[in-house]
């Protein structure tokens, strides 16, 4: 087909281009290469996740076969005699994360309400930025600070008070040392606050103004408005945020490994050293000598992976629900 025939006489032709019969093959090959490439890269994410799970299962298989489900309930962690049980670490992981949540959730809610309801916009964004900075500090730096500053402070000033006031509880008995469950819980609390508070702030900020005005028009005070309109509206998001924070706390490794004291014993006292799944892997993996030892440590990683994935699935579902509602309201 000759296109130039169809060109009108007075047409100004400066650049002559070839307009031969379109060759599909040549032109579309660029698109095909591009599509296949981006598709493969996207697929690699799925493979990465699958590979992660498979590698952990495969490498922990000797321990899985040897100890079975008993691994999860045994308190015996004895590398010398090749006996491995995960319970002390599962316990340590949950208790330290629980302490972190008890401290972090009220503070995070306070921060989120302060930023979304109290502070004027310019100040709210600046404060929010500072809170976000907490998430930017590397965990090894938190660990360092906790070892030399926070731990001794807890030992000298907080633990004596707790022992004095609540000493009748088993949690607050025993020797007061700088490293232990309480230190781990506290440093985790500081580290997860920015995660929980930033999601909560976002959630509260999208509560429609009409909801707030409806409460205020009924004569509610500011706090009553927050209690009746803002918090209930954002409840799912808040729960999602807490689960995101919990996921962080469960998996946090290095700061915890530095302050928890690393003891494979279950003790009611929060002052005593303990260990989490992540901290024991960090502390013992490089020195693990026997194959079974390595397999047992990898199985601890597998347990941790399953816990975190399960939590994340729940959290994403909840937070996603909030976002989708927001998108619907924006008419997207």
């Amino acid at each position: 087909m000759s296109e130039l025939d169809s060109s009108v006489a007075e047409r100004v032709t400066v650049v002559r281009r070839e307009r031969a019969k379109p060759h599909v093959g040549v032109r579309l090959i660029g698109d095909r290469i591009f599509n296949v490439t981006t598709f493969s890269l996207a697929l690699s994410i799925l493979l990465l996740l699958a590979g992660l799970a498979i590698a952990l299962i495969y490498d922990s298989f000797p321990a899985i076969r040897q100890f079975g489900l008993h691994f999860l309930v045994s308190t015996d962690w004895d590398p010398v005699n090749e006996q491995y049980g995960a319970l002390p670490f599962i316990y340590g992981t949950f208790v330290s994360s629980f302490i972190a949540l008890i401290v972090a959730v009220p503070l995070s809610l306070g921060v989120a309400l302060c930023l979304s309801e109290m502070a004027p916009d310019w100040l709210g964004h600046r404060l929010g930025f500072l809170v976000d900075l907490l998430a930017a500090i590397p965990s090894v730096v938190y660990g360092l600070w906790a070892v030399f500053v926070m731990g001794p402070w807890l030992r000298d000033h907080v633990e004596p008070l707790l022992a004095k006031w609540f000493g009748f509880l088993p949690f607050f008995q025993g020797p007061k040392v700088a490293v232990g469950m309480l230190s781990a819980g506290m440093i985790l609390a500081i580290m997860i606050i920015p995660y929980i508070s930033s999601v909560c702030t976002d959630v509260f900020r999208v509560v429609p103004q009409s909801q707030r005005e409806a409460a205020l028009a009924l004569g509610a005070t500011k706090w009553e408005m927050v209690k009746t309109a803002v918090i209930p509206y954002g409840m799912t998001g808040v729960i999602g945020a807490i689960i995101v924070g919990l996921g962080r706390a469960l998996g946090e490794t290095i700061a915890v490994a530095m302050v928890i004291g690393n003891s494979a014993e279950i003790s009611a006292s929060l002052f005593k050293p303990a260990a989490t799944l992540a901290s024991v892997i960090a502390n013992e993996f490089a020195e693990a000598t026997s194959d079974m030892y390595v397999a047992a440590l990898i199985e601890l990683g597998l347990v941790l992976l399953i816990m975190c994935v399960a939590l994340n699935v729940v959290a994403r579902a909840l937070v996603l629900g909030v976002q989708q509602r927001r998108y619907r309201e924006m008419g997207r």
């Binding site: 087909m1 296109e3 169809s6 307009r19 379109p22 599909v24 032109r27 579309l28």
Partner: peptide, 19 residues
């Protein structure tokens, strides 16, 4: 377009859009 069907299988939409 000038008697050629732009929806033919061997036609590249990219070429069509240039014309």
């Amino acid at each position: 377009l000038d008697g050629n069907n732009i929806y033919d299988d061997d036609v590249d939409p990219v070429q069509v859009r240039r014309r």
